[in-house]
């Protein structure tokens, strides 16, 4: 009699399959399943109660969820655009620096080296309405008002965006700088001879060349910002009264504070759509920009 043997290809793939299953597949299926149950962390037995699409229906009709969703999209849009503009500006200036550029490049990355939690604490202090740096400066300049930076809804969003931008603009700056380094000099000289002013050279030659780099930075940062949690949690905790609630603070509150993990997982699946949409959008733009330049793919 012959022993049953697994086919060779399966044996060879098995280690990878096991790792992927343990790390990705099982948690994914488990969370997907639990989003169809009223799973509460405090009552594990609820995991076995199937409620169908109840959680999803609840989310889709929940004004708080949609407010957080909208706020996240707004947050993403403003932060990404400002980071792009600032990063582009910094990169263009850095590209002109001839002495000490390496050192500058390293310094540029400092904000990225800090833990976002610490950045959150730092800005929470800076924007504190009693003892914070900003209000102190304002008052010593003669403004007799203590602005409620982290209490007023709009100001609090501004403060969080400020912290986020401070921390991550260098991602754009560095990627765009890499693009500027890779850029051939000849077309710029040809443009000069063809009659371009410096602005026209930038607009018609440099910028199209940088677009692929910009879209790569956009993709990376959109995924990053869409899951913004730590800075927000530290600075405002999504409050006051949910006025700075983003998707992930809402989800963590639902899952861990209210212990309604089933509902939180359902929120996760809905909000992942957001990330996927942004990624697909920027990737489309990226390949279009690369095709423009005659690069493959």
């Amino acid at each position: 009699m012959t022993r049953r043997r697994l086919p060779e290809w399966l044996v060879l793939l098995l280690p990878a399959i096991i790792v992927i299953a343990a790390v990705v597949l099982i948690p994914l299926l488990f969370s997907l399943y639990s989003s169809f149950t009223p799973y509460k962390l405090t009552r594990p037995s609820t995991l076995w109660k199937w409620v169908g699409t109840y959680n999803y229906e609840k989310i889709l009709s929940d004004a708080k969820f949609w407010a957080a969703f909208g706020r996240t999209v707004l947050f993403l849009t403003i932060v990404l655009n400002l980071e792009l503009l600032l990063g582009l500006g910094i990169a263009l200036m850095m590209n002109k620096v001839t002495w000490g550029q390496r050192t500058l490049r390293t310094i540029l990355m400092f904000p990225m080296m800090f833990s976002p939690i610490l950045v959150g604490f730092q800005f929470k202090f800076i924007f504190n309405d009693n003892i914070g740096l900003v209000n102190n400066v304002l008052q010593s300049m003669g403004f007799n008002a203590a602005l409620p930076w982290l209490v007023d809804g709009k100001l609090a969003m501004f403060s969080i965006m400020f912290a986020e931008i401070w921390m991550s603009t260098s991602v754009f700056a560095i990627l765009i700088l890499a693009g500027l380094f890779a850029m051939p000099r000849d077309p710029l000289e040809a443009a000069k001879v063809d009659g371009c002013t410096p602005w026209q050279s930038f607009r018609h030659i440099t910028l199209p060349f940088l677009m692929p780099f910009i879209y790569i930075a956009m993709t990376i940062r959109s995924l990053d910002v869409a899951r913004a949690y730590d800075i927000v949690q530290i600075m405002t905790g999504g409050g006051p009264a949910r006025r700075t609630e983003l998707l992930w603070t809402l989800m963590s509150r639902t899952g861990y504070v209210d212990a309604r993990m089933g509902l939180a997982n359902a929120m996760g699946y809905v909000s992942i759509i957001l990330s996927i949409l942004f990624t697909v959008y920027f990737f489309r733009k990226l390949s279009a920009a690369r095709a423009e330049l005659g690069m493959a793919g």
Partner: peptide
């Protein structure tokens, strides 16, 4: 020498 055409 390197043509310096505008690639896009």
């Amino acid at each position: 020498q390197n043509y310096a055409l505008y690639p896009h």
